[in-house]
Amino acid sequence: MTMTTSHITAKLELYRVQVALREFERRAHDLFLENLVKGTSHLGLGQEAVAAGVAAAMRPTDWTFATYRGHNHTLARGVPMTPVLAELMGRSNGLMAGKGGSMHLTSVEHGMMGSYAIIGAHLVIACGAAWSAQYRGTDQVAVCFFGDGTTNIGAFHEALNFAAIWKLPVVFVCENNLYMEYTRTSDITAVEHPAADRARAYGLEPIIVDGNDVDAVFEVASTAIDRARAGEGPSMIEAKTYRHGGHSRADPGKYRPDEEVKAWLARDPIPMYHSRLLAEGASEEQLVAIHHAVMAEVDLATEEAKAGTPPGPELLMKDVWADGGSQWRN
């Protein structure tokens, strides 16, 4: 099969973004082992196709709300690697000057409205942004990513009902990686498809997609985002995927059966897309060049992040209030 030039350009970009997310996360992991990245971190290794596919369907003015597993979603909105890596390392050249850390990546100028670390909260917050777009008559859409574990907390259900009754321009994207932290979600959930099956209860079509197929993700996300933009209300997408590592830095993921891990690694979104692009007419040289360019970007970001200074004490008391300060008394 052959592709048109614009088609292949778009697909090569989807490939590039996935490779960038993958190599960034690998580097973040390496820097952990060197104790340069502190605290905790929740890597998105294996889930790149969801972030890349959905982001490609968004306009720059649309909003992303992500979870503490948000590196992928931040980078996919076009936030440069250096400030993200520097944020993970607690440097002054970090995205939030080191004040937020891995779990709270935010870049409003890129439409990245925050990474939220308390399960469920950002679904209702995304509803608020969507309400604001609806009230102000803009055609912005809020896209909210969350994991399968989130479908069992109350805020998930409040958000779905709220979005449905107000017909809000919000697209919920469940990254179902089968595990709620260390426990199989199917063991602690009343339905088979934790997000899609619940969507029906709120009058939404259940949409299930192969979350390791970036083209498929792009397609369903485009449809849902277009619907939201046209005033036709919210959508719920459940993307089936798998995280290659454990839940967080502290978790080796030993609770997962070897054969399950093997089966999912064989469905790694990046090699799968690599093969598809070759079959569709891209050249190996093109794909290698993309990989080289990404590695150069990751290396440069690593050097720039390492060169960042620790945040100065003047930042400690800054920006509690909109006046930039933290004064609570006169």
């Binding site: 209702v124 917050i125 509803c127 805020a155 409040e158 009902n161 709220f162």
Partner: peptide, 28 residues
């Protein structure tokens, strides 16, 4: 009804909506 809007009994959604709206240009 657009500016004075009834909600379900969903306090998380009420305050989450207020937060999301406030960070995108409204004064809820």
């Amino acid at each position: 009804p657009v500016r004075v809007r009834d909600t379900p009994i969903s306090e998380q959604a009420i305050l989450g909506a207020a937060m999301g709206a406030a960070m995108t240009g409204l004064r809820p």
